[in-house]
Amino acid sequence: MIELGSILVFLVIGYVFGTLAEKRHFRSLREREVLSQELPALVADTVDTTQQIEQAYLVVGATVIAIDYFKAFAAALRSFFGGRVAVYETLLERARRESILRMKAEAAGCDLIVNVRIETSSIGGEHQGKNKINSVECYAYGTAIRYARH
């Protein structure tokens, strides 16, 4: 019973803090996305060749987000039945959008980022001899373009 009690405590802590952080993060993402609207990021690997390009360089943005106990638990339960793992969907969405925003921050003063790619990797740990994912890293990178000013 003590076992069950400690699980419950961890779940409550994970849920309360995880949900608060997630809500706050989504709000902040939205605000910063609006602010950085002036700088488009494209997957296309071509640029407008009618304009003279003054500078082109690599920009990167990396985010690592930890999984809380609640998310890990809910995902483990989900694996019995299959289906959408909603708790991880929001986690990865946050990591991707945050990475793009950080990449954009590196490209301050540029007109465009092209050839944007996103890599995801899990940072695992070992638990009871099993590989267990503790946090996830999203790494966004692209080529920042600055056109010549006339």
């Binding site: 949900t19 339960l77 465009l112």
Partner: peptide, 25 residues
């Protein structure tokens, strides 16, 4: 070339994680 911020998100479910969790339990 512009940046479009979608009005609605489609990449993750809108349902409460807690409700889903209780169903799973």
């Amino acid at each position: 070339v512009v940046t479009k911020i979608p009005e609605e998100q489609h990449n993750y479910g809108k349902q409460s994680h807690l409700v889903e969790f209780l169903w799973l339990v």
